[in-house]
């Protein structure tokens, strides 16, 4: 599978999806008016990846801001990862949030309560 490598912009995050290393990374800002356009290729990629995932997939989500339009798309990403996890492959989700950003921590907890995959909440010091 071809990896996905996208540079971040003021409204969209940087993305690194690599099937050989089992790394899924989304970082930065995700605030486009219409997020489906941006996330659809990512969800499609995961749909293919879940057919033959590595024994261990490491997921790093480190968002500074995301809007409610993105929140549904991010849930779609997690739902694909949940399927991989259910298929007895290890999935580790690291949810990064800045020290004083309670809203971002809470957002991670929201996802954790919907998705049956353990989350690791990681605080980043300023």
């Amino acid at each position: 599978m071809e990896p996905i490598s996208i540079e971040g912009t003021a409204k969209t995050p940087s993305v690194q999806f690599n099937s050989k290393e089992g790394i899924i990374e989304i970082k930065g800002r995700s605030i486009p008016e219409n997020s489906v356009e941006f996330y659809k290729p990512l969800v499609d990629w995961l749909e293919l990846y879940k057919a033959s995932p590595l024994d261990k997939t490491k997921v790093n989500i480190q968002l500074e801001y995301f809007n409610t339009s993105s929140s549904k798309c991010i849930l779609d990403v997690f739902k694909k990862l949940e399927t991989i996890h259910k298929g007895k492959n290890d999935v580790e989700i690291n949810w990064y949030y800045e020290e004083d950003d309670e809203d971002m921590l809470e957002a991670g907890e929201d996802y954790e309560s919907i998705i049956r995959v353990p989350f690791k909440m990681i605080e980043i010091a300023d």
């Binding site: 008016e33 219409n34 997020s35 489906v36 409610t68 339009s69 929140s71 549904k72 798309c73 849930l75 929201d110 919907i114």
Partner: peptide, 11 residues
């Protein structure tokens, strides 16, 4: 978040 689809408008 878990039950509603995105609308055509993207909202």
């Amino acid at each position: 978040l878990n039950h509603q689809k995105l609308s055509d408008k993207g909202g």
